[in-house]
Nucleic acid binder design. Sequence first.
DNA 1: CGGATTGTTGAAGGACGTCAAAATGTGTGG
DNA 2: CCACACATTTTGACGTCCTTCAACAATCCG
Lengths: 253, 253
Amino acid sequence: MNPVEGALVKRLDLIAELTDEDREALAALPITLRSVEAGADIVEEGQRIRDCCLLLSGFTHRYRTLIEGKRQIIAFHVPGDIPDLHSLHINVMDHSFAATVNCELAFIPHEAIWQLCTKRPAVAAALWRETLIDGSIFREWIVGLGRRTGLQRTAHLLCEMAMRLRAMGHSDGLRYHLPLTQNVLADALGLTVVTVNRVLQELRQADYVERERSRMTIHNWPALARLAEFDGGYLHMRQPPNMSVEMRPEDAI
Amino acid sequence: MNPVEGALVKRLDLIAELTDEDREALAALPITLRSVEAGADIVEEGQRIRDCCLLLSGFTHRYRTLIEGKRQIIAFHVPGDIPDLHSLHINVMDHSFAATVNCELAFIPHEAIWQLCTKRPAVAAALWRETLIDGSIFREWIVGLGRRTGLQRTAHLLCEMAMRLRAMGHSDGLRYHLPLTQNVLADALGLTVVTVNRVLQELRQADYVERERSRMTIHNWPALARLAEFDGGYLHMRQPPNMSVEMRPEDAI
DNA sequence: CGGATTGTTGAAGGACGTCAAAATGTGTGG
DNA sequence: CCACACATTTTGACGTCCTTCAACAATCCG
């Protein structure tokens, strides 16, 4: 199995139970590779699309822009995610989708996925489940935007990204690469850059987290999770990583 | 076809293309009727469930409660909706689900739906699509909570409910039954009761809407939609109702 | 090295929250 | 049909979290 399909199988294994036949069928999907530059739109609002894409490397976000230029980021995606899987059944995009940093993507035609779903119901179920988990994350964001303070919201996002990245093996312990400017963070958290800046300083001064360039380190997971009232259950992983376990120094990247 | 399955078919017809065979198969689903009193929880967070339910009459909401008792409502559901369809593939609830007012519900075992999905792929697609639209509404709420003012958010919710109810035939024109206290509205809009009260007064004084008991009347749809920056596209209906058309007096209930 | 992006800081204002109480509506039992 | 309890709506005063505006420092990148 080449690394491209490997990522897809790994992702679905994380959330659903697949047989070897399912995995082989997934690996047989036709794909087209494409690189996208940081900041570029991959799909724009209103567009009708015929492929889903699998994020291989990099970081993407989905967003909507209101008049007056206000932007709200709706979701972040990490390698292994299929950011526009929903397009399989809702093919007119109601939001845009962009590369946060330079990305490698694998495009898969809807047609091929439909055929696969017919042949392998377990894969269909896994993909459906994947879109439902996407929705579950939306719900958690709604709760945060509606009822958490800026500080808690920020802490919550840092927890979520830590857990998602660690589950996919893109984090060793509590240290991970989060290539987001404060501007991008602000648009995801429903805050302004200024507030994000101050909130991050607060988290830093409490020694909950550290941030050097785009490298995030969580120094005090229990405190951060308590502050954010974070419970990873909404990510619905089959085997959630135990985030309370400190990484050993020799595992550090 | 009895009225119960009628509601289900009507709902799915709204968003997907079904054949007569699909409709018959839907009508053959085994159901259990149940009434739930206003305010009662139907499903609680953490629970594992084996049935989906179709809302026949009434109004329900889904919510999460944070420590300190802060509550955030995540979604409202109107007759014809299947509020917990996601449980089909994510059977541990990450939020609670309650009856806003007295409700009539039809429960359908997951097992029966799975079987139907295997036999009739079009139904599976329609149901999947239904869960994706649910997610689309979440995204719109995220945008609102993150980037719209309290006033805009409230206006947006009133537009959304108007369109959803009208599509299901539960509204004549721009007048509909919205049995939500200001407290409930506040928890959905991420505001406090006090603010909701003032915002509603503002909308009333501008003569955008009127509210008598739980009967909402939108007097100035264009203005309300403009204020909210409402575009119903995210509801992904096959034939969106034209809300700009005024109802004729003789159609009024 | 120099322009552009990103991060940081301060001061002032506004949207919304909190607290508390009054007014109004609603359901129930006598 | 009235009286009473209770839920809901409304109002006012005041506090605070976050925004806005504006400037400057640090960092990135060719």
